[in-house]
Design a protein around this nucleic acid. Sequence first.
DNA 1: TATAAAAGCTAACAAACGTTAGTTAATTTT
DNA 2: AAAATTAACTAACGTTTGTTAGCTTTTATA
Lengths: 193, 193
Amino acid sequence: MQLTKKLTRKEQIKKVAQNMFRERGYSATSMRDLANAVGIEAASLYNHIKSKEDILRQICFGIADDFFHAIEQVEQSNLPAEEKLKQAISQHVKVITNNLDASAVFLHEWRFLSEPYLSDFKKLRDSYEQSFKKIIIQGKEEGIFKAVDEKFYCLTLFSALNWIYDWYKPTGLLSPQQIAEQLSNLLLEGIKK
Amino acid sequence: MQLTKKLTRKEQIKKVAQNMFRERGYSATSMRDLANAVGIEAASLYNHIKSKEDILRQICFGIADDFFHAIEQVEQSNLPAEEKLKQAISQHVKVITNNLDASAVFLHEWRFLSEPYLSDFKKLRDSYEQSFKKIIIQGKEEGIFKAVDEKFYCLTLFSALNWIYDWYKPTGLLSPQQIAEQLSNLLLEGIKK
DNA sequence: TATAAAAGCTAACAAACGTTAGTTAATTTT
DNA sequence: AAAATTAACTAACGTTTGTTAGCTTTTATA
């Protein structure tokens, strides 16, 4: 993998938009702001993208895809629930730390999608969360997890996972793998029998 | 306490704004949207408030006050660290569940504050988080907590606490007190020796 | 009941918004 | 070298933005 990939203008716009949407929010980022950061005029953006919301769509559904592929791999394995959960956590952390800006947009700016994309997005998200709940249920069936409420447990787990983008720095002390381990320790030990 | 307190227009505007800022975001809520929801014209809002940002300021700093008073009470007690942490969690949950809209705005829309309010706000927030870290440090000194990194631990704790506004329903199964207990179980047991 | 204050209204402001039209310069394909 | 495509530009569009000015109606005070 090359370190400095030459980006097409379209990719460059997406990248800059990810950062600005994250930093200022989708609504508060104007097409003129975006164009200025890219170094062209606002109107010129439209040679590369369909609309402002089109950019948001690409960001949100693009990263949703990443999360989905990650969890699918875990689901298809025939591992015990504890190992599955550890891997799911690890994969989730990896997706976020590899895509900090996009993850932040994914988590907070999706609500500015219009229908029917908004409904599609929510369905994807629900389905992803469902995958985690299934792992907890499996663990209870295996008899290795306590009788926790999987809904409450997953809410807490996701909140911890989905806040990472807010404080993780690639230059920081903890690697993504270490973060995943620490979180597993903190949140998995508490439900093991 | 009376159930249906008669609100002044100013209070009513703040209440409606809290809800709209939470639901659509500060930037995406126009003064005409807000006025319409209140049932008056946009210009009439200015008989009661100074500016759009003034409303945001009142919401953010108002709820910040609530959090501060809650943690101050805990800090001034001479309880052992474990009990302090349990109470701090309980108080935090109480503030959020009592002010769902305002909490959401407090957590996500503060970035639209302009200077010098923005800096003031960040200082308050840091100071509040510091109070939690101190409790963890006290617990380690008392020898009842494991040698966890208080920074990482508090980040995880806050993420769980600060996501509550997103799923808590007053009509739901869990009372605020029960939520606090469950969270304490999940996140406190993991660090006890 | 007269008077002052509070709270509403309409109209308008300048600025910023997303987007389109039409044109030109640079690059790629034939 | 000619033709076609790509990507930039300027100018402008109709709307929406937060806010102010000035006037009128409602409510509270003296």
